[in-house]
């Protein structure tokens, strides 16, 4: 996938695992480019953006309120989001955000 790097864009890697990829076109890794905005991109805003732009199936299995459904783990650059402020975390360019579902059969 070719990445267009414009000065007013915000590149990010979003990954899905543990079955969450099934809701995103069955693709585990997405290189996304968010539109540049005045306010910083937070995980809260990213989740809303993913729901509108990348999610292909059953939003209720991914989103609950403004957050992800409990049982979906979120890691930013391999760090548990519970350590970095969860929804309020301000994303940096080229961050790697990973969503792992624990809700699928074990």
């Amino acid at each position: 996938m070719s990445k267009i790097c414009l000065s007013n864009s915000f590149p990010l890697t979003v990954q899905f695992g543990g079955g969450a990829e099934l809701l995103f076109n069955n693709t585990k890794k997405h290189d996304v480019i968010l539109p540049q905005k005045e306010n910083p991109w937070t995980l809260r805003l990213l989740i809303a953006w993913l729901k509108e732009n990348l999610l292909t199936e059953k939003p209720e299995l991914f989103v609950q309120g403004e957050s992800v459904r409990p049982g979906i783990l979120v890691l930013v650059n391999d760090q548990d989001w519970e350590l970095i402020g969860e929804l309020d975390y301000e994303l940096k360019e080229n961050d790697n955000v990973l969503f792992i579902s624990t809700l699928h059969g074990g």
Binding site: G18, G19, L22, L73, L75, D80, T102, G105, G106
Partner: peptide, 21 residues
């Protein structure tokens, strides 16, 4: 905890299968 099992598998790069019946 399920959270730790999943985190353990992730950080140890253990290969597992996840799908609903």
């Amino acid at each position: 905890y399920e959270k730790e099992i999943v985190m353990y598998a992730y950080f140890k790069k253990l290969h597992y299968f996840s799908t609903e019946c």
